[in-house]
């Protein structure tokens, strides 16, 4: 499979880098402090392909901490609050859209 870094990066709006945490698999986002957070509101925002590539490169370098890093769109129209930019990312951020068989 082609590495995300070998793919042409094209972003059409504000974006973040997201991945899953290696030891437990939970959804995480790359922060401005070069770390990871399980809270989308902590995510570093990129707006250009070059910024996205730089943040993605840094994220992928942390192979022990996270897996499967990629660029995901976000929506900042709600007073700057970071919201997922599509349904897939909404589900990753907010959880499944159904009631779980056993409530958490």
């Amino acid at each position: 499979m082609t590495s995300p870094l070998q793919q042409k990066i094209k972003i059409t709006g504000p974006s973040v880098i997201t991945a899953n945490r290696t030891w437990d698999g939970i959804v995480i986002w790359r922060t401005t402090a070069k770390g990871w957070s399980a809270d989308l509101s902590d995510a570093a925002i990129v707006r250009t392909a070059d910024e996205a590539r730089a943040l993605l490169t840094e994220s992928i370098a942390d192979d022990v901490g996270a897996i499967g890093a990629y660029i995901a769109p976000v929506d900042l129209r709600d007073a700057g609050a970071i919201k997922p930019g599509n349904l897939r990312e909404h589900i990753r951020s907010a959880g499944v859209t159904i009631d779980l068989p056993v409530p958490v």
């Binding site: 899953n20 437990d24 698999g25 939970i26 959804v27 897996i67 499967g68 897939r88 589900i91 990753r92 959880g95 499944v96």
Partner: peptide, 9 residues
């Protein structure tokens, strides 16, 4: 049998 899915393994 271990996949990575949206929220977790």
């Amino acid at each position: 049998g271990v996949y990575l899915q949206l929220h977790a393994y």
